[in-house]
Amino acid sequence: MNDPHAKEGMSLIVKTVTRWLKGFLLLYGAYIVLYGHLTPGGGFAGGVIVACAFILVFLACGAGIGHRTLGRLAASELDSAGALIFTAVGALGIALGGVFFRNFIRTPPEAHFRLLSSGVIPVCNIAIGLKVGTSLFMVLAILSAVHVAVKGGRRRMVRRREDKS
């Protein structure tokens, strides 16, 4: 173990449990996002669960490994991408249906209650899940970075704070 970040974070027990748990959390978040049009849930709820998985890693293993799992730049890009996918769905509504946010994927009535139904709503759910998941993670990561700076009283964080979005 010559990882510089290995000493950060909480105890070995917490880290081990986190390692087992994070995959399941991500899977559950993805399930909530993808089934949002059939069961309770959807983009926001699923996105929060996805963010919780990342935040758990962040808290248990420290900021170093946390940022290696999901870098802040990558999070910011994914965040913008989520929003742009959502806008693109709306714009495609104009291109294909003539009206902004027109439902341009028609599903036959017998497909109701199946996974592939509900037109554009699952696509929107995925975009929202992406956006919420990454931006919630960013909120925590950015606020915690500043917190360290206040505690240590060092100016080291000044540069870091600038990437606040």
Partner: peptide, 16 residues
Amino acid sequence: PMFVVIPLAAGFVIPM
């Protein structure tokens, strides 16, 4: 709708 969509999309595109 473009009055809302264009600046909103621009707000996300600019940082990228």
